[in-house]
Design a protein around this nucleic acid. Structure first.
Lengths: 131, 131, 131, 131
DNA sequence: GTGGTCTAGACCACT
DNA sequence: GTGGTCTAGACCACA
């Protein structure tokens, strides 16, 4: 369900954050679903519980999951994402950076937007199909 | 020409890399143009020469600039960017990550693609106008 | 009468304490009124009786309710709240903390006091109206 | 400058966050001022560097301080506090809680608002005097 | 059982 | 020198 890349530039806790957000975005996990406990996931991934804990705390800050004391951690109903203003700003900055990288690689506008659409389809496509 | 954000999450050398790539992508610098020497740029930006040097090494590795012994450093003809395969893979991974973040923030497919187009226009738009 | 937020930062027993104090403060419950027994409330809220018991112990410690052996638990006459000195000190410390947070968020003194008044009205306002 | 209460209910890292925010709110520290390094403060307070680090990360998330790689940590120009929406909501909830506690302690509306004004003066008072 | 906090000590990237 | 990440292992509150 979650797979770590050992020699990745991004830290382990960030990989967990990204992948869990991806699972929720894709609909593989839905509001109310139980997330593995800190100890469970840490032993599954063979990493320290503190590292998982750090990832979960970041996910809670962003409103993706919610912890219930003594019971566990659950996917939250993501109607009101947290820190939306800051995250939208960061998103736009990163899009700008990637567009520069794309052009720097010699991609045309059409090629760049085609690559975007490839990812859009896998995320939003199913919903459109369901219409 | 290059402006550093003192308080940024990304390291200074990366800011230089990104901004020089952006200048080339926007057409503000073209193949053959001379880029400031390490000493020049470091004194302009009031930073350590080693930091500029690290940035230039990364830019050369990506094929954006080329050093000519005794003459200086120049923007290279960008027809065959180095490491294109690796960088295209990384680009696609990052697009995927941003699409997840966009959906996680509650953006619709239309809103997400509109944000992409906002950046595309400023980079590729001028060329289209010139057609 | 009491509504728990499953996904809240504060523990369940604290939510019960806060809400019962709020009911008394608003006048919805008055001195001598019977409060639900531990068993009743725990089955109403679908939680462990120990959790309700912990809440009632805290409320009794603060002088909000009183247990009469064999008869039940009642809202106490609130003329001499227990631990008033300690609680007043804690109150002042918390006001100080919130004022700092308000200023840190860029609120003006007027905006801060307006937010206070919004809450004051709903608690004390009715009494003034009854004068 | 920062004093820890050993037997406080609130964790050490939170005490650091609160106290540093208070120093900035009072004007004792201003934008651009250097904050003690993680290692410095941890040895001053005789606590683990990780605990200070956790506090600083939270302060950065709230936009109170900014770290500059390899140089240190500085008070940020607090014109755009971060997570403002979420923090304003939390502030209002906490005001509500404190108002209930005040009334529960038998305070009149006047006594409650007087206690608010006591803290307001020490934070905003100086500015008014400077007008 | 759950997550939250803290310590001790290590390694790394950046300047 | 700076902060960021990670591990190992401990204790606590909550349910």
């Amino acid at each position: 369900m979650i797979r770590l890349q050992e020699h990745s530039a991004s830290p382990i806790y960030e990989q967990i954050v990204e992948q869990l957000k991806a699972l929720v975005a894709k609909g593989a996990m839905k509001a109310g679903d139980k997330v593995p406990s800190v100890r469970e996931l840490s032993s599954m991934l063979l990493i320290n519980p503190n590292t998982v804990s750090k990832a979960y705390q970041e996910l809670e800050r962003q409103g993706v999951i919610q912890t219930v004391r003594g019971k566990g951690t659950f996917v939250s109903s993501n109607e009101a994402p947290r820190m939306a203003a800051e995250r939208l700003e960061a998103l736009q900055r990163e899009i700008r950076r990637l567009a520069v990288e794309a052009k720097s690689l010699g991609l045309s506008e059409q090629q760049w937007e085609e690559r975007i659409r490839m990812e859009s389809r896998t995320l939003w496509g199913d919903e459109r199909a369901a219409d």
